[in-house]
Amino acid sequence: MAHGNTNGNGNGSGNGGTHGGPVAARGAHYPSFEAPSVDKVMVEERAASFTKRSIKKETKVKGLKLAISMMDLTTLEGKDSAGKVRQMSHKARFPSTDPTVPSCAAVCVYPKLVPVAKKALEGSTVKVASVSTAFPSGLSPLVVKLADVRQAVELGADEIDMVIDRGAMLSGQYNAVFDEIAATKEACGEAHLKVILETGELGSYDVVRKASQIAMLAGGDFIKTSTGKIIPAATLPVTLVMLEAIRDYYYATGKRIGMKPAGGIRTSKQALHYLVMVKETLGDAWLDNEMFRFGASTLLNDVLMQLEKERTGAYQGGDYFSKD
């Protein structure tokens, strides 16, 4: 290999190639970004198999409540207002009048609305996440992006969702992508960093896998599929590729990275498919809101409707649940 494979993981396990060792490149030391190639057919077939599990009754209720506790309730629209964010924050804190239904994990808003969410969620367990780094394109100069991050943290964000520079990723400037993530991580300070790969723009699972590798090596606490502004957003196969990257990174380094699929997850059934996939790929250690999140806005209502259906036996209608 052109650049040294330092950790000698040559036992033919099939998913080796996750390395933490430094590699010399243009005077700076970068870790190896090498990632195994992804078998498209198999990953899609494997992902489809998770949709065939039958999860009913108490298990379903438990799964749905877990899904609520993992939700980053999100509003990222140009028309977002303080009122909307207050309303959504309240809903994240008390999704249901049923006290056994947990709060959501976080609300996710634009930086300007962080103080509103922060105030609305005072005294609760719900975190405030803010998208940053010139979301959703990420195509501002680095200084602007870092200032965006610092500002969001200053305003009180507990978590920062950054976007990677897809243009750089696709043109092979991996070091630049790495540097940006590392610089953003530094700017975050105490705040958790979620790295959005925007998989819908990356083109292939191989690139997704490599981008995951770079994001984890550069210090991302979570890797996240999408901004929600591009179709396709989160899909089961692409999430599986990222979960496998997390698993292999954990085997190689012992560090546990979180996962956040976002965009396109609208139904309870889909949410349960994701939970099954996490359990069968990473195990129970990832089945809590420290390690796994759903980025969603309409999913919560569907889950609440399903919980109510399980409680009353009657299918529910949209008129009985608040829209925002």
Partner: peptide, 8 residues
């Protein structure tokens, strides 16, 4: 089930 359905 249709009779109980809240959407109908």
């Amino acid at each position: 089930h249709l009779a109980k359905h809240m959407e109908i």
